[in-house]
Design a protein around this nucleic acid. Structure first.
Lengths: 347, 347
DNA sequence: TAATATTGTGTTCTCGAGCACAATTCCGTA
DNA sequence: TACGGAATTGTGCTCGAGAACACAATATTA
């Protein structure tokens, strides 16, 4: 059972040819006679030859250049950890000849997203990992990548595009279901539910729709009358308080509130101000959300860890690019349930 | 801001000496005049020279041997993912000359644990990452390691031993608090609580004590009368059902049950059999627990992700061993809250 | 002062894969 | 038999660090 690592030289000796010929057989660089080819090939298969990747990496230097396109954390704090994750990956993968180049865009300016992707296209990386924040612009980008055979991977936000090799993100429907399950455990039979979509131009509505579907279906599947599920869409933050208070006044059984976006802190603020007693769940670990979670005005936050998101993304690309492994077209990350008591390790 | 990687040759040119001399300065192999030494040293410090580990690995072969001692997943399914994580780490760290050797033990046989650690000691690795399942035996092992200056890292289970360089695991007190918080949200004011320690010889009691303390303190801090918190210790599984049913019969307000170990499925089984209506929380994603979680007999499982556990463990050792970084003596991993709806991504 | 030790410095080979180019063989044709 | 050109096959250098070795320039001793 002595598992020896064979080198090109070993194989060359066994096949009574030179290293060059073995190399040609391995890489199919042609110019090898049929007999020699099959003789060498036979040995390669028999010993299950695996090249020494350390030597290969040393020889070839930076073989793969990988571009990551994601929001600038100076605009959205959520991305700070993701950026840290990318930095770590940069160091980790440098040893195997993978160079990671990061491109940040302003998540409030589609134009800036376009500028950044043009930069990427100009720099011609070997693969790209993108957070497709802006729906239309992202589709354009993916199409452009497709034209030049640039392998694309998406993360965080999903877009429908068959050209994407692998998507890394959360199951949004399931995320809604999780919120529904958590909230409903704290409700009574007569209680009713409110879904709030606090929209911002930067996010596409599919996210919210998926989450709403999950939330709604879970409740209905558990025997709750669909009439007890209410929805408010907010485009204008200015009349948020007014709208919410009116809704709650009209219906005093509305005790479970689910906010489909990270803006749940805005609701928490109102709840605190008016000393309301509601069960509140929302998304993401923004600083404001953390504050209200700790104060007890937010009961649950549904989260997806940005670090494991970037880690999984980059490691998926490396598997695909460097190791030629098959990768799954969807990589679904855990839905993290955060309450006050388990918050510490997530921040 | 061009961050170039300097090679020995570059430095030799800058210092106007040969590569050999630079090498002697770096490794303190002597035979260098004071002036030359300080000139080269100055440059090395200035550019913060980091040797190319790929080249070094190619030249020297595996420099660091790292042993991982953990339960065999054929006996405890929880460890299957951990083993997969180790396999991945094996490939990743091979590039920098780190060789990981895995030793599995039967988690139901302390003797087997001892056999495996003897094997490790005989093989003299450069560091060891151990899941100290058996308390007494683990202390023996750590002492033996200490004797021969073998750096030890623990994960999953914590033992009190100052010789351990770093521990990777969960905050057990906080884990108990999390369970208390989750259960109490589904309780009424008059409801009472039951903590169950289902002991097995393989686990030490400190675990359970820490979790109990967290659970209890959280409830008390939230105004619950300590008299409402009951405890059962089970050493003999045979009279488990009898004991539990008696306890519940004596006190019909006992509606929240927390099992401090992974044996929560045993309670779920009893609850199912007798159609009881209780809120039940426990630990770990055993197959049996998953089954009862899906059936609705278990409400919450508190979990620690085995993959991030091994990843963190190995990367901590590499930081310590290869990069000479300072490592934290405790590395606290997230407490994962698992319900039926977010289970899928954790298994 | 010659012989010997000591110290400082440069050179060369190694690790394994990859690749350019040199060398050899082969075959048909003059 | 010799020659041209294509088809094969072999050789040597590269990547960067490490370490043995070679050799020079001093210093020390007899």
């Amino acid at each position: 059972m002595i598992k020896q690592e064979y080198t090109l030289k070993d194989i060359a000796e066994m096949a009574k040819v030179s290293r060059g010929t073995v190399d040609r057989v391995i890489h199919g660089r042609g110019k090898v006679s049929k007999e020699t080819y099959s003789r060498v090939k036979f040995i390669l298969d028999k010993i299950d030859y695996k090249p020494n990747l350390v030597a290969r990496t040393l020889r070839k230097g930076d073989q793969y250049r990988l571009a990551v396109l994601m929001p600038d954390y100076r605009f959205e704090i959520y991305w700070k950890k993701a950026a840290a994750g990318v930095e770590k990956a940069k160091a980790d993968y440098a040893y195997i000849g993978v160079k990671i180049e990061t491109y940040y865009f302003n998540p409030y300016m589609a134009r800036n997203f376009e500028n950044q992707y043009e930069l990427i296209l100009a720099n011609k990386p070997d693969a790209v990992l993108v957070a497709p924040f802006f729906y239309k612009e992202s589709l354009n980008f993916l199409a452009r990548c497709h034209e030049i055979d640039l392998p694309c991977f998406t993360f965080n936000t999903q877009v429908d595009n068959s050209g994407v090799i692998s998507h890394i993100g959360q199951d949004l429907v399931q995320s809604g279901k999780t919120a529904a399950s958590l909230i409903s455990r704290m409700m009574n039979d007569q209680d009713e539910y409110l879904i709030m979509h606090i929209n911002e131009q930067i996010e596409n509505s599919r996210h919210m729709q998926d989450k709403e579907r999950g939330f709604r279906n879970h409740l209905i599947d558990n025997g709750i009358d669909p009439k007890k599920i209410h929805v408010i869409n907010i485009d204008n933050i200015n009349n948020l308080e007014e709208l919410l208070l009116k809704e709650l006044k009209d219906n005093n059984k509305l005790n479970g509130i689910y906010v489909s976006t990270s803006k749940v802190w805005m609701i928490a603020e109102i709840i605190k101000k008016h000393s309301l007693n509601k069960v509140l769940a929302g998304c993401d670990l923004l600083e404001e959300n953390i504050k209200f979670l700790n104060e007890g005005y937010i009961d649950y936050l549904i989260y997806q860890d940005p670090i494991s998101q970037t880690n999984t993304g980059i490691s998926t690309i490396v598997d695909y690019l460097v190791f030629n492994k098959e990768v799954q077209s969807k990589n679904i990350l855990p839905i993290e349930i955060i309450i006050k008591e388990n918050l510490a390790q997530f921040i």
